[in-house]
Design a protein around this nucleic acid. Structure first.
Lengths: 168, 168
DNA sequence: TATTGTTATACTCTATAACTATA
DNA sequence: TATAGTTATAGAGTATAACAATA
């Protein structure tokens, strides 16, 4: 069982909550709820680690996807990275303004932009990645290597299932 | 650390909405990214199933927590359910207007409200819960019972780790 | 003096529609 | 006619500060 002595530890509305101090009721059987509470916490902490820098949360993952898929178009990056294509425009404006990525006109289809990361962007990405890993270290360090690999495998399988057939 | 020099392109057919058609790069090693993409998909589909009804996503989980913790105060519900205490006010206004929950003055501490679900709210909760389960069925039905139980156990453990004393 | 609930406000994120240039 | 990128805008979600009642 979890320690529940910390219920009143943070009575201010500022921050984190103690888990399991209330009965989850039917939410105990909901996958979405479990994912959301962890993800909320991780993203909130990640944002804190990025305080001071003018970086929006999606910009790290967008940069990572551009780095791994040089020449990718904006529409591909939007649909397959989970971005809105309109929001991606201003996001890429940021990346270009910082010199982290460039939009080049695709030679095959002149409607498309071919996105590329710059050397400066590679450096920034490595730094952000390190921050991201540190942010998750509390969790990942506590799991055995096999447990973590297993978890990733299940999550990837679940993500694949989301697109199996009855969904859009 | 594993940098991104490996460019194993799996894009046989680009442009579809199928997952894994782009290389995730460093995101392959990020727990937060994996959680977010699944949770985004589930919540989007859940919102579609709730189309027509005037229900906001947080209202289901708030109602579930009130049902499981009768007499809970707003500040408890906010901090431990992950709600903003100001946003919770208008959320509860909705629940009361629909006759799903009531705010009663706490006898022990007259500053507090004791939240209670109504019989009508119980009915609504059961219905929403069924919709929620159906929304996740594509995923949960494909996993063996033991796999799912194992996943929930790991996720609960991870959520507990988020609060294990070294976070700010 | 501190906390609970409330209100008002602002800021971010996301979603939609319309426009251009290309196909 | 359809698609890629852009712009503008509106809506939801979230965070912050100030206030009244109560402790």
């Amino acid at each position: 069982m979890s320690p529940r002595s910390s219920v009143a530890r943070r009575a201010s509305s500022a921050g984190s909550t103690a888990p399991e101090s209330v009965d989850l009721g039917v939410l105990k059987d909901m996958l979405g709820f479990r994912l959301r509470r962890i993800q909320n916490h991780l993203s909130k902490n990640f944002a804190e680690r990025l305080a001071g820098r003018d970086i929006k949360p999606g910009e790290f993952s967008a940069l990572a996807l551009i780095a791994a898929n040089p020449g990718i178009s904006q529409i591909q990056l939007a649909t397959e990275g989970g971005f809105d294509k309109a929001a991606l425009v201003v996001l890429l404006d940021d990346l270009e303004r910082w010199g982290w990525a460039v939009r080049r006109r695709s030679t095959a289809d002149r409607r498309r932009h071919a996105l590329e990361i710059t050397p400066k962007g590679e450096k920034a990405l490595a730094e952000l990645f390190a921050i991201g890993l540190a942010n998750e270290a509390t969790v990942t360090d506590a799991l055995a290597e096999e447990e973590l690999a297993n978890l990733y495998a299940v999550l990837d399988r679940i993500y694949g299932l989301c697109f199996s057939d009855d969904q859009a």
